[in-house]
């Protein structure tokens, strides 16, 4: 019961072995010197100050730390930063375009898909992976795709609505 989950050495001690990793985060190549045991979630949150990736449970249950890894949703609290070397990672900070929100972000905002919002980044990234694979999902398919992400506030009803709304908007966009 004595641990803390935030762990990163900004300047690792000389006797600690480190590895150099190069990860494309939200389109930008980022290089870091990390301990092999460093979790991807901690590199994102503390090393890169991308605090939109939340850690809620530390045990891969809640999904608040979900990011896209080469386009697939993964829980970044159970991946080591060194495993991401040479790969592409998308976090919530990479969802929006330069001036406008991603339709999934709009959906969660406008359809009240969030309350406290702690689960929202992970939910949206899991939804993004779904909609890229299946642009026209049923409500059941949305539920299955988000079944690894917990929300304690919404009872999920408006999360389903938000993703359905986003699917519709994305279809309309790609049709036009």
């Amino acid at each position: 019961m004595s641990g803390l989950f935030e762990e990163i050495h900004e300047q690792p001690a000389a006797d600690v072995p480190t590895r150099r990793v190069s990860i494309t985060v939200n389109g930008d190549k980022r290089v870091a010197q990390v301990e092999p045991r460093l979790l991807l979630a901690h590199l994102l949150r503390q090393g890169l100050k991308l605090t939109g990736t939340h850690t809620g449970c530390d045990t891969t249950n809640c999904g608040a730390c979900t990011v896209l890894f080469d386009g697939k949703p993964i829980k970044s609290c159970t991946m080591l930063a060194v495993q991401a070397d040479g790969h592409e990672v998308t976090t919530v900070e990479g969802l929006a375009g330069a001036s406008e929100l991603h339709p999934i972000q709009e959906g969660f905002k406008d359809e009240h898909g969030l309350q406290c919002g702690f689960c929202t980044p992970g939910m949206m990234l899991a939804a993004k992976a779904l909609l890229e694979e299946n642009p026209d999902p049923t409500e059941d398919e949305v539920r299955w795709a988000l079944s690894g992400n917990l929300c304690r506030c919404t009872g999920y009803q408006n999360i389903v609505k938000s993703v359905m709304w986003a699917a519709k908007k994305m279809q309309a966009q790609s049709a036009s």
């Binding site: 605090t51 900070e93 929100l101 905002k109 919002g117 702690f118 929202t120």
Partner: peptide, 28 residues
């Protein structure tokens, strides 16, 4: 629409666990 909605969907809403100030110590 919730006034905190935009910050929350952009990942910019600062939860208490996101707080950071240079030179801070860690309590346990």
């Amino acid at each position: 629409v919730r006034p905190d909605g935009p910050l929350k969907v952009k990942g910019e809403f600062a939860y208490s666990s996101d707080l950071w100030i240079d030179g801070m110590l860690w309590g346990a």
